[in-house]
Design a protein around this nucleic acid. Structure first.
Lengths: 119, 119
DNA sequence: GGCATACTCAAGCATCCACTTAGGTATGCC
DNA sequence: GGCATACCTAAGTGGATGCTTGAGTATGCC
């Protein structure tokens, strides 16, 4: 029944941090439409190729991207699991909050109107 | 039909950045279970209250948390929308990648086996 | 071999980040 | 008024981040 391993804090740190930069998000976005080489990733970005390589390291360390080199060309591919880990973390907190609001609403609805001022 | 406004890069920057710190995530996690004062947020964390206030500013600037002061006490509440924005961004890229894999699979399945070596 | 391509690495630099301490203000209670 | 509580702000610090330039290495093609 274990669908997701509980993500440790360090994993969430690195995934959210990786996604917090617009250049890296653009790279992930491009990779979501298909694999790409390092220079293809650099193409749309107005930063040096060396900077792109550094961003790629960040993405690989977070697990969001994997790459392998064939000949001169390094081909990069997105990895869906860390995306889902981040997604799930946010969804869980949002669900908890909405559940909390529901219970609060039920509670308040049960109180007679002249008692509500106390809460 | 517009369900979500397209999030601008700056908003995603600030939301992902806010979530990239374990203390801030712990604060969001606590707030997902109900509102809390600043010192209640600081309670479980082993950092100074001043640091918690600074984290709170980051969370408020990202829109993840809102707060209001009543008397001496500032009460903080989570805001679900930025969580959903982050969630949706990740989900969209994951969906695009999975769709891409499907199309690639279909394409390869259409090729006669002796042609596949070319691709 | 010669040369372009596609990265890769290292050093340097300005900025940002998380955190602390020290001091401050506003509120509630006696 | 006196005092504790709850928060706020500023300044400083060590370390991480994003970027550049300059140089290097490996591969593919003629």
């Amino acid at each position: 029944m274990l669908e997701y391993a509980e993500p440790d804090s360090a994993e969430l740190d690195s995934v959210f941090h990786a996604l917090a930069d617009p250049s890296r998000r653009a790279m992930v976005d491009q990779l979501s439409r298909g694999t790409a080489s390092v220079s293809q990733l650099a193409g749309p970005l107005s930063i040096s190729l060396a900077a792109v390589v550094q961003h790629l390291h960040v993405l690989e360390q977070s697990g969001l991207v994997r790459s392998q080199k064939l000949g001169r060309v390094r081909t990069c591919a997105i990895q869906p699991t860390p995306l889902r880990v981040a997604e799930q973390w946010a969804a869980d907190r949002r669900a908890a909050w909405e559940h909390h609001l529901d219970r609060l609403g039920d509670y308040l609805a049960q109180q007679p109107p002249d008692q509500r001022r106390k809460h």
